[in-house]
Design a protein around this nucleic acid. Structure first.
Lengths: 129, 129
DNA sequence: GCTTGACTTAAACCATGGTTTAAGTCCTAT
DNA sequence: ATAGGACTTAAACCATGGTTTAAGTCAAGC
């Protein structure tokens, strides 16, 4: 099994190392092993878990909830039901968030149409001066 | 022309009054008139502007950029081009954000499928005990 | 005339999600 | 053996977006 250093993990996920240290402190990265010099070693397990963590983060799950999820992962198969419920709820939240953004975008598109028309008219006036 | 009180405006947009006061302080609500007692009076113009402001906020435009937009609105028709550019850029940002969330959601959906299968298997094992 | 409710202000406070700093340890290559 | 680079820690610092607090003003109804 090969391990990744913090710099490799950070590069992999496109975040600064400081973010990974912060996540570990917050309980989002459990069971991290250390080498003889005390440096973090990210296993395959961690890389896979981190991918999930990052997906949750990108969809705006609060770090505290992500920690709860991670705790359940560590607890094992007895928590599958809780994790499933959490993911189902989260999916609803995300879909709702996206729909709110789409609605807001409709309003913005109307503004864009208005401004495009006005810019058009203004440039015509320039020509006919 | 009828005016709205801060409580009416807040109710209209589903935010606390404190948020509207904060937005005014931050320059997101320009030209607010006051009655004899110093209370804010929201005109039709403000209600329409606020709707746009809220659409920008819901799509995660930073308050500082919203203020820039509002300043351009106050400046008048000479700034139509800037506003159009800003809205076009913002639309791209929002569409990108939404696409990132959809991608993350794909990962979450895979987790959901795994968990559903596992929950299924676990309940079957219960039955066959 | 006095209480109640709606408003005012400035300033302090809060949560979230990190980033930065300072001081130190350790391995590698020259 | 020494310099450089990668790492460690705890704690301070930061930005964003508000919310809360404390003290006060004002108008209306009893």
């Amino acid at each position: 099994m090969n391990y990744f250093s913090i710099s490799e993990a950070a590069a992999q996920f496109g975040v600064p190392e400081s973010t990974l240290r912060y996540y570990e402190k917050k309980g989002l990265i459990p069971l991290l092993e250390r080498d003889e010099a005390g440096r973090r070693m990210f296993s395959e397990f961690h890389m896979i878990l981190l991918k999930v963590v990052m997906n949750l983060k990108r969809t705006n799950m609060p770090l505290g909830s992500i920690r709860q999820y991670v705790n359940w992962v560590v607890e094992g198969d007895g928590t599958t039901r809780q994790r499933l419920d959490m993911m189902l709820k989260h999916r609803q939240n995300v879909l709702y968030e996206i729909s709110v953004m789409h609605e807001a975008l409709d309003g913005i598109n109307i503004k864009i149409a208005t401004y495009e028309e006005r810019v058009q008219r203004q440039s015509l006036q320039q020509v006919s001066k």
